[in-house]
């Protein structure tokens, strides 16, 4: 069964970009446009997700907020990658405290994204 990746980003373009790359590699991709919608989907999901890609900057609830709440849920926890832009350096400590496991800087090249995603899913390397 395909591994399930949850892409949380307010920009539709970014979601589509990630979706195309990840689906192209055979992953099942789910989307949410902010932290609140994402939490709902996590709670409603019949199977827990295997990996989260979380944008830092979102309306309503940002990436930090989402991760903090996600990590308090009693579900099978999975790795989360935070995604920031180069202009806005991520606050590493804040990200780690919120519950991120890694972060990447937008725009992420497809091979790099797939490389890290594969590794974080324990699916071996890509390159």
């Amino acid at each position: 069964m395909a591994q399930r990746i949850f892409v949380i980003d307010d920009a539709a373009t970014v979601r589509l970009y990630h979706r195309q790359i990840l689906e192209g590699a055979g992953f099942e991709v789910h989307e949410a446009i902010n932290g609140i919608e994402a939490l709902e989907k996590v709670l409603l999901a019949s199977t827990p997700f295997d990996l989260y890609l979380v944008d830092v900057n979102m309306p309503k609830q940002d990436g930090y907020g989402f991760l903090r709440e996600l990590r308090q849920l009693d579900i099978r926890q999975a790795p989360a990658i935070m995604i920031s832009t180069e202009a806005q350096a991520i606050d590493r400590v804040k990200a780690w405290e919120a519950g991120a496991n890694f972060y990447l800087v937008k725009p992420i090249k497809p091979d790099a994204l797939l490389g890290y995603v594969h590794l974080l899913l324990g699916a071996g390397g890509t390159a």
């Binding site: 099978r76 926890q77 496991n101 974080l120 324990g122 071996g124």
Partner: peptide, 15 residues
């Protein structure tokens, strides 16, 4: 939750 997520990440690396 964070510990579990970390462990899941490390487990993936081990895999």
């Amino acid at each position: 939750g964070r510990l579990q997520a970390c462990a899941a990440t490390i487990a993936a690396c081990l895999a």
